[in-house]
Computed example of a mutant assay.
Amino acid sequence: MTGHLIYIPVGIAKCFPVQHAINIISAIFLGPRYAVLNAFVISLLRNILGVGSLLAFPGSMIGAFLAGVLFKKTANRFYTIGGEVFGTGILGGLFSYPIAKFLMGKEIMAFFFVIPFLVSTIGGSFIGYLLVRIFENNKIFKELKEVDR
């Protein structure tokens, strides 16, 4: 797993675009529950391995949830990406403030994480979208999809 090596350092946060790609893939193929579970487990592993921070939880999980719900309701990939970007970049960035201030003891501004989280999630969501397109055009994936019916 080399996804933890690609990150954007932002003060006490480490933004992982690969996390957002996984959120998009999980939201589309697995739905909101498993997308959130994936985001939680990956955030937990990042913290256990020392390559993440507590800030991994709100952004990744909120983004995965919104992406999964929007895909489930609309089946529209662009709404799914929008859910991931808004959930991680805006809501996750804002929810990270109290975690950073009260749990991590860092004095920062409330909107400090929004821009870096947006940069990370936009890039990662685009990568996830491209991977979904590749998977759907793959012969093996098409055969698995038919078996599932």
Rank of each mutant, 00 (worst) to 15 (best):
G3T: 09
L5S: 13
L5H: 12
I8P: 05
P9G: 09
I12D: 07
I12F: 12
C15S: 08
C15Y: 10
C15M: 14
F16W: 06
Q19K: 01
A21S: 15
N23W: 06
N23M: 05
I25F: 11
S26M: 14
I28N: 01
F29N: 02
L30F: 12
R33F: 10
V36R: 05
V36W: 03
N38H: 11
N38L: 11
V41K: 07
V41R: 09
S43L: 02
L44I: 06
L45E: 12
L45I: 13
R46W: 03
N47A: 06
A56S: 15
G59H: 09
S60V: 01
S60P: 02
G63H: 03
L66E: 02
A67K: 06
G68D: 10
L70H: 04
F71L: 04
F71S: 03
F71E: 04
T74Y: 03
T74Q: 02
T74L: 01
A75C: 02
A75I: 00
F78I: 10
Y79R: 02
T80N: 01
I81C: 01
I81R: 00
I81Y: 07
G82Q: 05
F86V: 13
F86N: 04
G87E: 00
I90P: 01
L91R: 06
S96W: 08
Y97L: 06
A100N: 07
K101S: 07
K101D: 03
K101C: 02
F102Q: 03
M104N: 00
G105F: 08
E107V: 11
M109I: 08
I115W: 11
I115L: 15
P116Y: 09
F117M: 15
F117E: 15
V119I: 15
V119T: 13
S120M: 09
T121A: 13
G123F: 12
G124T: 09
G124Y: 08
F126E: 01
G128S: 08
G128F: 05
G128H: 08
Y129R: 01
L130Q: 07
R133Y: 02
R133I: 02
N137G: 13
N138H: 12
N138L: 11
N138V: 04
I140M: 12
I140Y: 13
K142E: 15
K145M: 08
K145V: 01
R149P: 00
